[in-house]
Design a protein around this nucleic acid. Structure first.
Length: 205
DNA sequence: ATCCTGACTA
DNA sequence: TAGTCGGGAT
């Protein structure tokens, strides 16, 4: 049993089943991922359902105004995202003919899409597996390896230690481990699937 | 008080 | 590179 087998097995059993994870629709993915920026997934889950009921299609959102979108982000914080998400969706409709652009240059031009979200989109919508490192993944891997990583080294480590076809699932698993077990303050090491290989688990109560 | 699937601005 | 955005859950 390798660390990767243990992690993926844990994910199959305990991984969070957020509905956007099972959607390959670019519109649902874009709105979800923008809402998830620095925002808890359980909070996003409620707001996103209301949002998609109000704006069922990308055209509905693009035809609306920023003022129509603001109330949803008032519930989440980081209100500037309400103009970002509408700008992104309108750009995809009008400039890219209603399909997601899959070049890194085009994605980086979209407002609100930085290094992390670009890698998520390439993975989910473009079938180009990339590591995506958020604060959870950075904390989990730093503890696991026993040294403080930056985003560059964390992405490199994932690329070198996870087969591309398992990268997406592994990334999600690391995020869930970070959100559920490998907490910033009181990590639950005894329940962690990585405890047998983790440098931090040795000194963890 | 701290943290959440970061990105933007200066 | 640091400061800022932000309401909500714990």
């Amino acid at each position: 049993m390798s660390w990767l087998d243990a992690l993926l097995r844990w994910f199959d059993e305990h991984g969070r089943k957020y509905f956007w994870r099972f959607s390959n629709d670019w519109y649902v993915t874009i709105v979800a991922e923008i809402m998830l920026v620095r925002t808890r997934a359980t909070t996003v889950e409620r707001v996103l359902k209301d949002f998609l009921a109000r704006f069922p299609t990308p055209r509905d959102l693009c035809n609306a105004s920023d003022e129509d979108v603001v109330p949803f982000f008032k519930r989440l914080g980081l209100i500037k995202r309400s103009s970002w998400v509408r700008k992104i969706v309108c750009t995809i409709l009008e400039k890219y003919g209603g399909s997601i652009p899959c070049s890194e240059e085009d994605l980086e031009e979209l407002p609100g899409i930085g290094r992390y979200l670009k890698n998520v989109i390439l993975t989910k919508l473009c079938s180009i597996p990339r590591p995506f490192v958020d604060t959870n993944v950075l904390r989990v891997l730093s503890r696991y390896l026993g040294r403080d990583l930056d985003v560059d080294s964390a992405e490199r480590w994932l690329s070198e230690n996870v087969p591309p076809n398992l990268l997406y699932k592994t990334n999600l698993a690391l995020m869930d481990v970070g959100a559920v077990l490998c907490l910033p303050r009181e990590p639950r090491c005894s329940s962690c699937p990585l405890r047998d290989w983790c440098r931090y688990a040795e000194q963890c109560s």
